[in-house]
Design a protein around this nucleic acid. Structure first.
Lengths: 221, 221
DNA sequence: CCTACCGATCGGTAGG
DNA sequence: CCTACCGATCGGTAGG
């Protein structure tokens, strides 16, 4: 919710008296304007699709003129790529935090449920359009960019693999871990297309149900 | 695998001597040219996406000039809609046949597995691009068309609901039937994005694994 | 179903 | 980051 920036370091773009020094990397990676464009683009790409969104849409929604986004991104595809990368990096951060919050020695099913819940939030919480765009618009990427995104996705899946293999070793999966993981992602991603119609269900409840379906209870010896 | 057409009936568009009689309903619902356009459009919409496909692409791949598809469809959206409708109608036919082939009084899990296998074929077998297009491009449809397609989808899901409710009554589901059905569709649809990378797995094997994960074995009394 | 075409839109750029 | 613009493409149509 709250902006992660501290008060001291980042440039106060609007209120501060115009400093004469060149703005530190005005169009660089950390620019606030650039980040705003990414966020606006994510919303539009998600709700209307990549092809159906024009750079003019994004510029107007960001209070810019039609040619100005090209000062920050050299092409529309570049902007798409930035949306996906930022989405995956935030998702990776959030995933780490979700796991850290768990008690030591938690059951693998509990850890998996935390991963599922975090992932549902990444997909469905307001303002988190990045990863959904990634899932729907991979086709628009050229080979080299797709490889970069895939590498991020692979890192994201490491934690899932770990828990699922533990569960498999406990004989609590009813299919091989690798196939079951793909089914599990499918089931979670599917929520993108139906979740709002089931408002009776909280994301936490849904995460619990999904885990319940995919993982058998621990044998009580 | 083999082309389903017999040698005798279908019109040999190129070699036959020009018949003088008006072609029966040249632009009507059952026109062979129209069906060919639908099939070509399905391939293109699936592989490149609806927005990225041009009517010129479709015309060229059908051996027509760029304006000619508009003789059969009044707009590009109309063509998309026809792709989805034809896909769903064929899927409904296939589903009925898949159920008829089962022995009388088959276990609900067996029947569900047949539904899953048929659905996997509809999504992944060569030449079946229609339903995949429907899943990916619903956004492009306007309200009234979307309602028509949704009605077809609801009819398609009736059989799934039936078997899942039977299984729920047998206490063989680990989540409410309605939520579990959504998870199940998600898991099956997810195969669209990974199946070809797992060629070791046949569709029949995959259907069996999916059923195994989502449905508990019958209690052996 | 073809020919020839229109009007609009869009990604992108030069130059400041 | 704005102004002004280009070149290409695209859905769609008139008229045959």
């Amino acid at each position: 919710m709250a902006a992660p920036e501290t008060l001291s370091t980042s440039a106060p773009a609007e209120t501060a008296p115009r400093r004469r020094g060149r703005p530190r990397k005005a169009a660089g990676e950390g620019s606030a304007r650039r980040d705003a464009l990414i966020a606006v683009a994510a919303q539009h790409f998600r709700s209307k699709g990549f092809d159906a969104t024009t750079m003019r849409d994004i510029a107007a929604a960001s209070g810019m003129q039609s040619g100005s986004p090209f000062y920050h991104f050299k092409s529309k595809n570049d902007l798409l790529c930035a949306v996906m990368e930022q989405g995956m990096e935030r998702a990776l951060d959030g995933q780490r935090q979700a796991l850290v919050r768990l008690p030591e020695g938690a059951d693998a099913a509990v850890r998996l449920q935390a991963l599922v819940l975090h992932h549902l939030r990444v997909l469905l919480a307001p303002g988190h359009d990045f990863v959904a765009v990634m899932l729907y618009e991979q086709r628009a990427l050229a080979r080299p960019e797709r490889l970069r995104i895939t590498a991020l996705k692979d890192r994201y899946e490491v934690a899932w693999k770990r828990e699922l293999e533990l569960l498999q070793a406990q004989a609590r999966l009813r299919a091989p871990a690798s196939t079951l993981r793909l089914m599990l992602f499918g089931a979670v991603h599917g929520a993108l297309s139906w979740y709002d119609r089931k408002q009776a269900l909280s994301l936490a409840q849904l995460a619990a149900q999904i885990t319940q379906v995919f993982v058998l209870d621990a044998p009580t010896p």
